[in-house]
Every structure is written in structure tokens, then in C-alpha cells.
């Protein structure tokens, strides 16, 4: 099997005698340059060029439809106003909590589904299809369905009633923020009085986390399934001969093998989460007292409804920085700091 996959003949450049350093460099790096060059060029423009442009807009006076890149005075005034606004503070709180809860739920659910489907000897394809199907639906429409489901008097609460569960949660209508620490922070942290919003967990967000996990757990499952399929059969066999229990097998054997998959899922779902927009707009909107407002909505409203292009740009730069704070150390540890 192994040898079949190898090329049978010797193809490729034969060593030459005299080589300039440039041609040696190209020979060693030609393929890399050929492949990565175009990628770096377009991403340089579309990502870093546009980020630079956005950063420039964020410190400009641009409000209204006419482009105005004149620097603001003071330069960072858009940022300071925005960061002080209760709404944007609530947005940062919401997206942080949402991302943590959503990643946890989607990954755990995806992992459980993957193990169940992987080991199911019956209707594997059917189940895989069922759990992946929500991912194929447009967020704009699933958001509406989930809003119906989480309408307290007509939605899922009717089913809870039928099941004899007495709780009647307010779901997306619940304005409560539990575990508010802003008061404590203000007394402890110097300058804590800049906090203009309740720092806790808005209960309305939980419904949105459920909806988003429903939609994307199937994708996490798909990646885990690909990973599980890649685990050499010998490992499973060896573990089985050792008399390992199922739980031990998944914890000690499968999990380490799935680490790269987990990284893939966390990064992909993380970026979906931080940019979430469609689903929230259709489902809960900004929520009672901005309980479910997210930076994506803020950027859109500031840019296209209020036509405050500088504020919209500043908000997205803050979003990027947030991502940076969370993800750069992680990427660094995973890809740079560790062994390569």
C-alpha cells in the first residue's frame, strides 16, 4: 500500500554543477514563491491594505456619504466616544460572552455527535446529513424560526409546559444581566467609573447561543469526523487490546489525535462568532436594553444607517484588536512558540 503511493520513476531537476546563489535560492524556493506569492499579494491588498484603509477612516472625520479622510481632532476622538458609549460596551461584553458560550457548546456538541455518528453502524449517512443540514440554511431565515421558538407565550415554552416543566423562561425577551460585576470593578479598579454598562451575563444571549450552536455544531462534527477517520486503526486496536474503556480511549487516544481538528474548529467557529450578524439581526435584534446587540450590528448601523463611517471603521478595528488579543497569543503558542 505504502509503496504504491510512491512515484515509480525519477523525475525532477538533476543537480547541476555551477549555480549562482540566486538560482540556487530559486531552485530551493521556486515552488514556495510560485504558490505563496499570489496569495500573499492578494491578501496583502484585500486584508492588510483594507485594514490600513479602515484604520485611516477610523481616525478621520468621515461622516455622511462624501468621502472625508481629513484627520479627526483630536485624532482618537471617535474611539474615545465610542468606547465610552453604553451600547458599544454592551456589545463588547455580549460578543465575548457569546463567543465563549457558543464555542463551548458547539465544540462539545460537535464532538459528541461525531463520536456517536462515527460509531453508529446504522444510518451513518442519514444522521450525518441530519446534523449537518441546519448549516445549509440561510441564517436570515433560521433566525426567524428561532425567534418564533423563543417567543415565550407561543414557542418552546408550550412544549416545556406539555412536558411538565414548570419554568417559563423569557428567552430573548429577558433583559436580566446576571452576575453584574461592574459595581465591584468600579470600586476596585482605578478609573473603573468608565464602565457604563452592566458587566454580567445577559440571559437573552443564551437563546442566541443555542440557535448558533444548532446551526454550526454539524460543521464541528464534520471536521471531527474527518479527524476520527484519520486515526490509524492500529491505535484503536492497541487501545482495545490494552482493555481501555471507551471513555479512556477517547480521552487518552482520540483526543490528542484530534487536536489539530480542534484548532481548526476553534479558529473557524471563532471567526464566525465574532462576525455574527445575520442570525442575531433576524432573531433578537439588539435585544432588550442591548442584551443581544453585537459589534457586527453596531458596525452596520453606524456605517450604513447613521452614515458615521469613522465610527463604523473604529468599531471594526476594535473588533480586530479583540481578535488579536485572544487569538494571536494562541496562534503564537500553537504555531510559532511550539515545535514547528
Amino acid at each position: 500500500m505504502t509503496t504504491n503511493a510512491l512515484p515509480q520513476s525519477r523525475i525532477g531537476p538533476q543537480p547541476k554543477r555551477a549555480r549562482t546563489s540566486l538560482s540556487r535560492f530559486l531552485e530551493r524556493n521556486g515552488f514556495r514563491i510560485l504558490v505563496l506569492g499570489p496569495t500573499l499579494l492578494v491578501l496583502g491588498i484585500f486584508v492588510y491594505g483594507f485594514i490600513a484603509y479602515t484604520a485611516r477612516v477610523s481616525v478621520s472625520q468621515w461622516q455622511g456619504l462624501a468621502v472625508n479622510l481629513e484627520p479627526n481632532d483630536p485624532l482618537m476622538s471617535t474611539y474615545s466616544e465610542m468606547l465610552a458609549s453604553p451600547r458599544f460596551q454592551a456589545d463588547i461584553r455580549n460578543i465575548t460572552i457569546f463567543t465563549v458560550l457558543f464555542l463551548t457548546l458547539a465544540v462539545v456538541l460537535g464532538f459528541v455527535l461525531a463520536i456517536l455518528v462515527h460509531n453508529s453502524l446504522r444510518s451513518r449517512g442519514l444522521f450525518r446529513g441530519v446534523f449537518l443540514f441546519p448549516y445549509s440554511l440561510s441564517f436570515i431565515v433560521t433566525g426567524v424560526v428561532w425567534r418564533w421558538i423563543f417567543t415565550p407565550s407561543t414557542g418552546v415554552n408550550l412544549i416545556l409546559d406539555r412536558l411538565g416543566i414548570d419554568a417559563r423562561p423569557g428567552w430573548i425577551t429577558d433583559p436580566t444581566v446576571v452576575g453584574d460585576v461592574s459595581g465591584a470593578l468600579e470600586t476596585v479598579v482605578p478609573g473603573g467609573d468608565v464602565i457604563n454598562t452592566q458587566l454580567g451575563i445577559p440571559l437573552a444571549l443564551i437563546a442566541v447561543v443555542i440557535a448558533a450552536s444548532w446551526q454550526l455544531a454539524g460543521f464541528a462534527m464534520a471536521i471531527f469526523l474527518a479527524g476520527l477517520a484519520g486515526i490509524p486503526e492500529e491505535l484503536a486496536e492497541a487501545a482495545s487490546l490494552d482493555g481501555a474503556k471507551t471513555r479512556q480511549y477517547y480521552w487518552h487516544v482520540a483526543m490528542p489525535q484530534l487536536r489539530p481538528m480542534l484548532v481548526t474548529i476553534l479558529v473557524i467557529l471563532g471567526h464566525v462568532s465574532l462576525k455574527s450578524f445575520d442570525l442575531v439581526v433576524a432573531m433578537s435584534g439588539r435585544g432588550p436594553g442591548f442584551a443581544t446587540d453585537v459589534p457586527g450590528i453596531y458596525v452596520f448601523e453606524q456605517t450604513f444607517r447613521s452614515l458615521s463611517f469613522n465610527t463604523g471603521a473604529a468599531a471594526s478595528i476594535v473588533m480586530l484588536l479583540l481578535v488579536g488579543i485572544i487569538i494571536v497569543p494562541y496562534l503564537y503558542r500553537t504555531y510559532v512558540g511550539g515545535k514547528s
Partner: peptide, 14 residues
Amino acid sequence: ASLLLGMFIPYQVV
């Protein structure tokens, strides 16, 4: 890593 960061750019502003 810097390539990955490109995923996170909010589309509305670009």
C-alpha cells in the same frame, strides 16, 4: 498566523 488574522476582518467595513 498573519494570514489567518485575515479571516477576522469584518466584511461590512471592506
